[in-house]
């Protein structure tokens, strides 16, 4: 539980020395990203704790999505993008030329801002990943994975009677949860979410937030959000980016009550920088 108003009896400083998870799942060292001549990300170094939610916040264009895309090498698909530095997942260099990128993307799932189900049935949307990655040995296996994923995404009760209908026929909030079900169906270790609730109403947003909170028992989640309140609600750790620089990172409770850097303070309190 985040407690932003009622700081625990111990001082806010004490919380800093006890990060929510000691083991870093993802480690980035001196990561720089260039789009052609444009230097979009400068020397980003950060540890992302395992089985916890890390929020990336910062003004538009500061490089949040750029950094997020580094973590599953989505930037490889942008021809002018160039990434330097190291990113490790469980001590394995993900930019190692010998690494299988398809395999990496199964380990690091992604949910986008706009729900993007495939133009296929609800069942197929979720079954697709496990099938291509060979995660199901039989049809029953596959059905079990689909059911479990939809249940974990909190969508099962709403769709169990219409698994053969098109995924695109669901409401926006349901589509986003379908995309989350699709992401978790391949049992990833890390889930990247780029503004997953920006197209959702408050109720659908609350459902997704509740889901994120449950998922962090088993997954490492990184979420980009423009809502300070959302970051405060769902994350245990927060990183603030500004003009391509990682300005400050720390426990969410501390970032939103006593940020150290003036730029962080100005941003989260809605002041002119």
């Amino acid at each position: 539980m985040n407690s932003l108003v009622q700081t625990p009896k111990t001082s806010a400083r004490a919380a800093e020395s006890t990060p929510h998870s000691l083991h870093p799942k993802v480690v980035a060292k001196d990561v720089n990203v260039y789009y052609g001549d444009k230097h979009a990300l400068h020397d980003v170094t950060i540890d992302i704790p395992e089985k916890a939610v890390m929020a990336f916040i910062g003004p538009s264009g500061c490089g949040k999505s750029t950094f997020l895309r580094c973590i599953n090498r989505m930037n490889d698909t942008i021809s002018i993008a160039r990434v330097t530095g190291d990113i490790l997942i469980d001590d394995q260099h993900i930019y190692d030329p010998k690494l299988d990128v398809v395999q990496l993307r199964a380990r690091v799932g992604m949910v986008f801002q706009k729900p993007n189900p495939f133009p296929k049935s609800i069942f197929e949307n979720v079954a697709y990943g496990p099938r291509i990655h060979g995660l199901a040995r039989s049809k029953t296996d596959l059905e079990e994975i689909v059911t479990a994923s939809l249940q974990r995404a909190g969508l099962w009760n709403e769709v169990k009677d219409r698994l053969n209908e098109a995924g695109t026929g669901l409401s926006g909030g349901q589509q986003q949860r379908l995309c989350i079900a699709r992401a978790i169906a391949v049992s990833p270790e890390v889930i990247l979410m780029d503004e997953p609730c920006s197209a959702l109403d408050p109720i659908a947003t609350a459902r997704v937030e509740e889901l994120i909170d449950e998922l962090r028992q088993n997954f490492t989640i990184i979420i980009v959000t423009h809502s300070m309140q959302q970051a405060a609600r769902v994350s245990q750790n927060t990183a603030f980016f500004h003009l391509g620089i990682l300005v400050e990172t720390g426990p969410t409770d501390q970032i939103f009550t006593t940020p150290r850097d003036k730029r962080t303070q100005d941003y989260i309190t809605g002041r002119f920088g």
């Binding site: 108003v5 009550t257 006593t258 940020p259 309190t269 809605g270």
Partner: peptide
Amino acid sequence: RRQPMAMDLREIV
């Protein structure tokens, strides 16, 4: 109205 954060929140509390 404002969902204050950080110093603003402390100020109000």
